[in-house]
Design a binder for these strands. Structure first.
Lengths: 317, 317
DNA sequence: CTGAAAGCGCTTACAG
DNA sequence: CTGAAAGCGCTTACAG
């Protein structure tokens, strides 16, 4: 019935010898009253919370991103952390900084671009013990989960170049939402094209573009025509595929196509679409493991386990 | 230089007469030291935080949901709240309850299904002053943003029935991710079909189904054939559209099609796809307004402003 | 303006 | 087991 006893029981403090019956009595009452420890008070006392903030990057939100997040969050919850997503859609990260100041997360997972040295220092100073970046390449400040869009572009181009194509077309959405991924993928694609000594042209298209045919077909005709298309995602690849077939262009005989995301759509098309496979769900779970590892004082490698993107070859390439 | 003075300055307490120069001196130093008020301590003192938890419903995450969330979050941030998303992908809401216990949000926005009377009581008791539900119909406990999937189904069926179709086909994904929306939309569609005295058959299909043609076409042939399709979303509608055209079925002459989401894809197709328009971004902003209203002690109506879903008529119906 | 003080709800070391 | 106490960092009423 004393404050201390209750606290001991509820926190399962072994070193205090408290009879089974009191333990149970306390627990029962706590349950009945729906007692919830006041998190702010506990955090104040302990100097840290159990909250992990996950910054939602400025990515096009689709099923793939949702699945990756889901994997990370589920794993964190299994380890008894509370994962909360922050949705930076506005400015230059002040919102994230404020959010972190307000919830004092014990860990933060965020795109590398948002983890400036200054910000990392501030975080560390205010008790955020585990910080994980997600980015193209290893951060010098914190362990990084490599989620390389450049590698996506590279993989696609290499795949097509390996199959003898020397004139490639990168078909990319003009949509500003995709800018970040698109530009990184294009950069990787261009690098790889140079390395493989093949030509790469880029074609931007609006999602609502009625005249994709009008701009796409000419690039696939004539002397120096492209013989392979690397499309930003499966959806765009399938639009192109349909268009080519409609115009009597054989795939992959005349023109090869590689999409990206390896979505169910890719398997459903005829011919079946070759597509770049992004990091698997399992590899995302490594992010959660790393957070837990850091917080338990384990050493965590600078680069978190991840597979490089690879092309799943089907019938269009 | 006293604790109190600093606090007064940093919190802009007008009632204390403090000279301009001290004010500025304090602020300058605070800035230089990168002082951040300890949120847990402040929350403990004030008894409330500035955190708004937004529960991410178990919905298929796509651009539409992302935009809606973005609108709510942006508006909340503009009002100086910190919005954090909770991602319940696991169980029966224990995770959300735990998250709320841990961050002590001043407000919670969540799907009506997750706001049991018990939970609402607990929340209120622990300082969550504003609670907003998102659901099919007004909650008896808290103001509700009506986001009615049933109305989506109703709108589509009514639209087709109004155009003289008496035998409709609901084309829905089998995908478990969509169950929640799908079943609600189907329910509304069935109710409306009954009311309009038209027939409605449901066809479930896997996203990866190669043989959509095999199952779809027979329902569109024969004596009691369906003459109109209500598809779960624009993507599925477009798959069907393409299939019909491939098989020489005229749209909308032989079979009408209505999709859902009014996505850019709908405008891009030929013929252009009629599609159900969900609540606009502006109407989502009302959710953020309601939160702010409640916290400022204003009265908020039981049902938050929203438009009913309507069909944007194009060329396929 | 300052200084001392109280109190938010918690945990934990300490003397009984 | 209990009770009293301290202290996490903050805000605010109070007496100077």
């Amino acid at each position: 019935v004393s404050r201390a006893t209750v606290s001991y029981v509820l926190n399962d403090v072994e070193s205090q010898r408290i009879s089974q019956e009191t333990r149970e009595r306390v627990k029962r009452v706590a349950l009945r009253m729906g007692y919830q420890p006041h998190a702010a008070a506990r955090a104040l006392r302990d100097g840290n919370s159990t909250i992990v903030v996950v910054e939602l990057p400025y990515w096009p939100i689709g099923p793939a991103v949702a699945e990756a997040l889901s994997a990370v969050v589920t794993k964190l919850e299994a380890r008894d952390y509370t994962a909360l997503l922050h949705f930076e859609r506005t400015g230059r990260g002040e919102s994230l900084a404020r959010a972190c100041a307000r919830v004092q997360p014990v860990a933060l997972i965020a795109p590398a671009e948002e983890l400036s040295p200054q910000f990392v220092r501030t975080l560390r100073a205010s008790g955020t013990a585990a910080i994980i970046a997600i980015g193209e390449k290893p951060s010098r400040l914190v362990p990084t989960f490599i989620f390389s869009q450049e590698d996506v572009g590279r993989a696609a181009v290499r795949h097509l170049a390996d199959r003898g194509h020397i004139n490639l077309l990168a078909l990319m959405p003009a949509d500003p939402e995709t800018t970040r991924f698109r530009d990184a993928r294009l950069l990787g694609a261009e690098n790889e094209a140079e390395r493989c000594n093949v030509q790469l042209t880029t074609l931007l298209t609006e999602e609502s573009d009625d005249d994709l045919a009008g701009v796409l077909l000419p690039t696939l005709a004539g002397g120096n025509r492209a013989t392979a298309i690397y499309a930003y995602n499966d959806e765009l690849a399938l639009r192109a595929l349909e268009l080519l077939l409609d115009h009597g262009i054989a795939v992959p005989a005349d023109v090869a196509i590689v999409g990206c995301d390896n979505s169910p759509l890719a398997r459903a098309s005829r011919p079946r679409l070759s597509s770049v496979q992004l990091p698997s769900i399992e590899s995302w779970e490594a992010v959660a493991e790393a957070v837990d590892g850091l917080l338990r004082g384990r050493r965590v490698s600078r680069v978190l386990a991840t597979e490089a993107p690879t092309v799943i070859e089907r019938e269009t390439s």
